[in-house]
Amino acid sequence: MITSPPAPLDPGELDALKERARGLRVSIVTMLEAAKSGHSAGPLGMADLFAALYFKLLSHDPEQPDWPNRDVLLLSNGHTAPVLYAAMAHSGYFPVEELGTLRRLGSRLQGHPERSALPGLENTSGPLGSGLSQGAGYAHVIQHLDHRSDRWVYVVMGDGELNEGNVWEAAMYAAKYELGQLIGIVDRNFIQIDGDTEDVMPLGDLAGKWTAFGWHVMEVDGHDIAALVDAVNAAKAETSRPSVIIANTVPGKGVPFMERDHTWHGRVPNAEQAAEALRALTDSGVTR
C-alpha cells in the first residue's frame, strides 16, 4: 500500500541543510585530527545524509532522548561514528565542544558507538553486518506488537558490510514480515579497507539484489539532500514492505585530496592536512 508523500523542501530549507552538512564536515575533520585515529572517508561522505536525517527527517527530541514517539536511527557501520556524533552534537544531544574528546580514554565518544555511553545512541555497533537485524527486530516490535504506525526505524549501512551474510538474513526476515516502517540506507561509496568494493567482493547489481529480496528499492545521489528527503518520504509512503535507499556517495566528500581514495577509509589528517581540509570546506560555502 502506498500513501501520499509530504511536500518537497523549499529552497531556503535546502540551503540551510546544505550548510548543516558543511558544518558536520568541519566537525568531522576537526575531531579526527584531534583524535589522531579513526576513519575519515566514510563520515565525510555521509554528512549530507546525516544533515537530512537529523535536521529534517527524524522525529526526535534531544531534550528527551528516550521520547517514546521518536524514530530510531541505528548506525550499522559503526566505524563512521564521527558523522553520527557530529550530527548529535549539532542537534543538541551534547555540547559540540565534547567532539574534541573523540576516542580518548573515558570519553563518551568512542571509536565505535556504545549505546549506554551517550543519551540518544540507539545501538552499539562495531562488528559489521548486525545493524539490519537489530533494525528488523525493532521494526517488528513497533508494527506487530505495539501496533504503532507513526514511528520509523532507519538503519544506515556501508556497502562493504553487505559482504556479511547476516545482512541478507535480516533482509529476508524484513520482507517476510512486511516491515514497511523499516528503512535501510546503504552508503554506496565503493570503498572498503582493502580497496574498491567491486575488487574485494563485487556487489554487482545491488539494486537488483534488494529487489529480489522483496524490498522497495530507490537509488539516489547521496549528496543531493533534496533527493534524499524525497526518497525517505517515498519509503515512508510504502507501507507493505521494507524500503532501501542506495545512496551513491563520494568517500571523503568536500576534501579534494581525500575524495575517492580508499586509503582514507581508516586514516585521519595530520595538522597540516586538517588545515588544508578546513580551508577547502570554508571556501566551498554550502555543499554542492
Score class of each variant (00 low, 15 high):
Ile28Arg: 12
Ala139Met: 08
Thr263Val: 14
Thr30Leu: 04
Leu44Ile: 11
Ile142Ala: 09
Ala35Arg: 08
Asp205His: 01
Asp230Leu: 09
Arg20Thr: 15
Glu19Trp: 10
Ser107Cys: 02
Tyr173Gly: 02
Ile183Arg: 00
Phe213Cys: 00
Met46Gly: 05
Glu272Met: 07
Ala52Tyr: 14
Asn123Leu: 05
Gln192Met: 07
Ala51Leu: 14
Ala171Gly: 11
Leu32Phe: 09
Pro65Ala: 05
Ala277Cys: 09
His60Val: 10
Leu281Lys: 11
Leu49Val: 10
Val255Lys: 14
Ala234Phe: 13
Thr282Trp: 11
Phe94Glu: 04
Leu9Met: 14
Asp159Glu: 14
Arg241Trp: 05
Asp66Pro: 05
Val200Pro: 03
His90Met: 12
Gly254His: 13
Arg279Pro: 01
Trp215Gly: 10
Ala87Met: 00
Arg260Ser: 15
Tyr177Cys: 05
His223Ala: 02
Lys36Trp: 06
Glu161Cys: 04
Leu206Arg: 01
Arg148Trp: 10
Glu164Thr: 15
Tyr54Pro: 00
Asn233Ser: 12
Glu272Cys: 09
Asn69Phe: 11
Lys209Ser: 05
Gly160Cys: 08
Gly111Met: 07
Asn123Lys: 08
Gly252Lys: 12
Ile246Phe: 09
Gln192Asn: 06
Pro11Gly: 09
Met1Cys: 05
Tyr177Ser: 01
Ala237Ile: 03
Val156Met: 11
Glu13Val: 09
Val232Ile: 13
Met258Pro: 11
Val255Ala: 13
Ala117Leu: 13
Val83Gln: 03
Phe190Val: 04
Thr282Val: 13
Ala139Gln: 01
Val29His: 15
Gly106Pro: 10
Ser130Gly: 06
Ser37Asp: 10
Met157Ile: 13
Pro11Gln: 06
His140Met: 09
Val229Met: 13
Ile142Asn: 12
Arg20Asp: 11
Val186Lys: 06
Trp264Val: 12
His262Tyr: 12
Val232Arg: 00
Val250Lys: 02
